[in-house]
Design a protein around this nucleic acid. Structure first.
Lengths: 230, 230
DNA sequence: TTTTGTGAACTAGTTCACAGCT
DNA sequence: AGCTGTGAACTAGTTCACAAAA
């Protein structure tokens, strides 16, 4: 077991022990953000306990999440911030720039194209796509070029696009995602409401604004009648 | 038990039996969307089985989610679409219009203000707030007025704002959400990266774009080394 | 017969608690 | 002494399977 772990941490990539839960990868991303801040603040080491206090999390959970990918900690000390940060970036595949396409140059698409949060952590918004002739050939305020969606396959290859963000009106979402799949893009972030179908060789992640708002509405409706809270 | 259930479905509102999971309320929202489509298509009744086939879900799960709030189905028949739709709208608190404020009239805030998906299901974008003088007093393309954020408390009362959407740059997010809480708003949808602190009388729901993208990045990084899929 | 509502069984995810390094 | 890594215990969420109703 110890021998296996040593092999794993020597041969850094390649480690899908069974199947990592989405909840885990989301947390890794949160840890990374925290480590970036700690590193920027000049902190050298951090314990799972201290890290857990920052957000609403259990220290054992953090240790388990990390231990899953290797033995990154030092007993009696904690984790070296710079080192753990490097490991997490590599586990999350952020040690290379990922190129993102945004489908739909409407309000939302243009806003996302220039959203500074995306660029920060190694993502590069390389292209916008739209079907409206008057938009094609122009670019976003931040300088992202707008291509004809019919050019998707060609541009995807030439620009080496890794991820597509779906920001088109709901009725166009499925046809557009079909084109994305055909163009060979393997990861999709969907902002349109409703379920999209993709083959299971493609990873789809959906952010449904209506569902989020309605979940808040439910809370407000329940809150009307007081009810207890733990 | 049967008697209790009859009481519950007679006295429709008021039913927080223990604590409803977020996963459940999210699904209710998905069911509602599906029912809207079925109703529009003129479908009269639907079984949990048929509903489950529409998206990737188990029929028992749907029945359990619904049965939690009352006995809405008819054995041997299924659910009456119109009736179930009405129940769900009421459970989710969508039987009244909810008034939404968007904090931050930048790219993202303006895009969200005019996002058609929001208006559709009973939400009303009533106000934008910003700190930049040159924006205050203007309005979004869709006609949502932009107020000075210092006016938040007054406007929140006058306009009866129910929900705040946080679309300001990350460093401003915590101060802004503090003001939102002070203004008495009880539900917040946060688009800024990182954790926000709110008192537990306020419901906070976060959509973290960086986390979503990094989760896709993880998938791509793992996919490099083939690995099996079930 | 069809399909709901639901206890029981199962699966996934979290937290505890402690042996074992440093 | 301090803190990680991890089996064991626990909690939450999902699916099965079937009795009861229409």
């Amino acid at each position: 077991m110890v021998a296996l772990k040593l092999v794993n941490s020597a041969n850094k990539r390649r480690n899908t022990p069974d199947q990592v839960s989405e909840l885990t990868t989301n947390r890794l991303s949160v840890y990374l953000r925290c480590l970036n801040e700690l590193d920027a603040a000049g902190v050298q080491t951090i314990s799972s306990q201290t890290l857990a206090e920052q957000f609403q999390l259990n220290a054992a959970q953090i240790r388990k999440d990390l231990a899953y990918f290797g033995e990154f900690g030092v007993r009696g000390v904690g984790y070296y911030v710079k080192e753990l940060r490097r490991h997490l970036r590599q586990i999350l595949g952020l040690d290379r720039r990922l190129r993102v396409a945004i489908m739909g140059a409407g309000n939302l698409g243009l806003a996302l194209a220039d959203y500074p949060g995306f660029r920060q952590e190694g993502f590069e918004i390389a292209a916008l796509f739209d079907a409206a002739n008057e938009k094609i050939g122009h670019e976003s305020r931040g300088g992202v070029p707008i291509y004809d969606i019919r050019e998707l396959k060609r541009v995807a290859r030439k620009e080496r696009l890794d991820i597509a963000v779906i920001a088109v009106p709901a009725p166009h979402a499925q046809p557009v995602v079909d084109q994305v799949v055909t163009a060979g893009i393997k990861a999709v972030l969907n902002f349109s409401p409703g379920a999209l179908k993709v083959p299971d060789t493609v990873k789809l992640k959906s952010v449904d604004l209506t569902v989020s708002l309605e979940s808040l509405s439910f809370y407000l409706a329940q809150g009307e009648t007081p009810g207890e809270h733990p």
